[in-house]
Design a protein around this nucleic acid. Structure first.
Length: 293
DNA sequence: AACCACACCAACCGCGGCGCA
DNA sequence: CTGCGCCGCGGTTGGTGTGGT
């Protein structure tokens, strides 16, 4: 009933979502929230566009989404609102907890449209609505989407750009991968906080610099693959897939790099983009207890 | 059983609004 | 004021299900 999976010229997957993709998206949003739809797929390890992720979460994965048939009351609300507001599906959704605008729109076109055809459907103006139907609660766009999980905290949003101060008390998580050895970083202390961070492929299979990924547990691509190495060194992960729902907290590696210190503090966990591809490693930096003079 | 038409609905697409630099 | 990026909304598409012939 859904479109077949396909990959466009930019490598973005389209069509039906797999269970693995659902799990990745759900796990990521449950932990980090929807801080930036456009960037989110990269961090969640998904080859999808942000729009697609947003739609999938909003219409299907979000915990409070109600499935199943519409009740008579729900139908009445939709019909009333449609008579008064027209095709304002998003407002309808705000009046029908658990129902999404897309679902309401589909239901209208497939069930209710015909039923109301032939009936008088002259649409009054908004002023008339408010005057004639004071009892109807029309929830306007007063809030953003309530897509954050219950345990989501605003302070955990990874601020990719525009980070203003190293003294922010919030737990700041930055992520970056490197297309070259990390020791080649050339940030000044001023640049560091205004640097736009980008994601690039880091090929674990190339170069001796891979040993610098070890951080206490040396990863040698010649002796084991990344999956095996992670399982060996992070035994608290029963399955590699658990990585997608585990935190990856790290250290002041980048800051030390700037200070030209030779020994790096253990950074924490390697975070591959996909258990199968091993192409991208995201490194995060928990700067909550850091200070830069 | 085979075919067809329609129903259904998840997902895609384009556009406009908004915030920010 | 302008341009840009992001997000949300509403319209549309396309694949599968289902009932009728």
């Amino acid at each position: 009933m859904v479109r077949s999976p396909s990959i466009d010229k930019n490598g973005i997957k389209k069509g039906e979502w797999s269970k693995e993709e659902d799990d990745k998206l759900r796990a990521y949003i449950n932990r980090y929230g929807t801080w930036n739809w456009r960037q989110l797929p990269k961090f969640a390890g998904l080859s999808r566009c942000g729009k697609s992720c947003r739609l999938r979460w909003k219409n299907y994965l979000q915990p409070n989404v109600k499935r199943g048939n519409f009740t008579k009351d729900e139908e009445d609300i939709i019909i009333n609102l449609h008579n008064q507001l027209g095709k304002k599906w998003s407002i309808f959704a705000k009046n029908l907890p658990g129902r999404t605008d897309n679902e309401i729109k589909n239901y209208w076109h497939t069930h209710l449209k015909k039923r109301t055809q032939g009936q008088n459907s002259v649409m009054p103006s908004n002023q008339e609505i408010k005057r004639e139907s004071p009892s109807l609660i029309i929830k306007e766009d007063t809030n953003q989407e309530s897509s954050q999980p219950d345990n989501y905290q605003q302070t955990s949003i990874p601020p990719f750009q525009g980070l203003t101060s190293p003294n922010e008390s919030c737990c700041t998580v930055l992520s970056q991968s490197y297309s070259s050895t990390p020791s080649s970083l050339e940030y000044s202390s001023a640049d560091f906080w205004s640097q736009e961070l980008t994601i690039e492929d880091y090929d674990l299979t190339q170069g001796s610099s891979c040993s610098e990924l070890s951080f206490g547990s040396v990863y040698d691509p010649k002796s084991s693959d990344l999956s095996t190495w992670i399982r060996t060194n992070f035994s608290n992960f029963d399955y590699l897939d658990d990585l997608w729902s585990e935190s990856f907290e790290t250290d002041n590696y980048m800051i030390n790099a700037y200070n030209n210190q030779q020994s790096y503090v253990d950074p924490g966990h390697v975070y591959p983009s996909s258990p199968s591809t091993e192409e991208v490693c995201l490194w995060s930096y928990d700067l909550s207890d850091e200070s830069i003079s």
